[in-house]
């Protein structure tokens, strides 16, 4: 569990960490769309350059990064193999047996899927590694502001999101503690048959839910005690401001995006 870095934050001091979370969110979003629009080797080279460049700028070591996403590799390999074996006939056929069909078309497609998967995982991991959960919530809230016109309770949603994100690490720690306590009482987590494993989860989940509910209750009491009112217009302690580094990043990425669109096969 501790080797799994997807969705975690890594406190470092780099340009990427200090970027405006709104910029990071929007660029990541555009990036993902571009990943699906890219369809020839040159456009992928540009995407890879953008990705590797961003990782290097974040000061997170490339080795740590690759080791961290290794657990997800099986998922990618699984998808790629499916694509490889069962894609429609096209181009030269290398191998054919019953319904399995490896064709030139399939190989190329599988290659693209592999790269797309990898790139998206790398970029979104970079986003969470370099942005505090609370900043992601603030950024999202700020981006959702126009929805106020449609009477979407943006502030309440943002508050819910930031509370949820805030308590993820707390609950993870809590889960580790409870697991240790139950292991000390002779529970083997992740061993034995499926039924036994599922049964071993009860001593973990019951206390975890108890503690989550207690925490939620304490938190709501504490918020009410300090006069929290729903759907009030709220000011913010940390105000996001546009910086020069945001402009530079936008320009670099937009150049990259334009290059991809220009050289993609239309």
């Amino acid at each position: 569990m501790s080797k799994f870095i997807f969705g975690r934050y890594l406190p470092l001091n780099s340009v990427v960490h200090r970027l405006d979370p709104r910029a990071k969110l929007m660029l990541s979003f555009c990036y993902i769309i571009l990943v699906f629009l890219a369809n020839n080797p040159l456009s992928y080279v540009i995407l890879i350059a953008l990705t590797v460049g961003s990782i290097l700028a974040s000061k997170i070591s490339l080795g740590f990064f690759l080791r961290g996403i290794r657990p997800l590799l099986w998922l990618i390999v699984f998808t790629v193999v499916l694509q490889l074996l069962f894609s429609p006939v096209g181009g030269h056929t290398y191998f054919h047996w019953a319904f399995i069909n490896i064709s030139q078309f399939g190989v190329i497609n599988a290659g693209y899927i592999f790269i797309r998967f990898l790139l998206i995982i790398m970029m979104s991991t970079l986003l969470t590694l370099s942005t505090q959960p609370l900043d992601i919530a603030t950024g999202l809230a700020s981006l959702m502001k126009p929805l106020r016109w449609l009477h979407v309770p943006v502030d309440t949603l943002a508050m819910m999101l930031s509370i949820a994100l805030r308590f993820v690490p707390t609950l993870m720690d809590e889960a580790t503690k409870i697991m240790n306590a139950q292991r000390a009482r002779g529970v083997d987590f992740g061993e034995g048959g499926l039924f036994k494993q599922a049964k071993a989860l009860i001593p973990l989940l019951v206390p975890l839910f108890m503690s989550a509910f207690n925490r939620a209750e304490d938190l709501s009491t504490a918020m009410e005690a300090r006069g929290y009112q729903d759907s009030e217009h709220r000011s913010q302690y940390r105000i996001l401001t546009w910086q020069k580094r945001d402009t530079v990043t936008w320009i670099l990425f937009l150049i990259g995006f334009a290059a991809i669109l220009a050289c993609r096969r239309w």
Binding site: K177, I178, A181, Q182, A184, R185, G186, P203, P207, M210
Partner: peptide, 20 residues
């Protein structure tokens, strides 16, 4: 490790959170 876990009883900080 199982025999060791029985041999060494461990009362954690705030053990009431292990009741289920």
């Amino acid at each position: 490790l199982k025999p060791l876990r029985q041999h060494v009883g461990m009362v954690f900080q705030f053990p009431e959170s292990q009741l289920f």
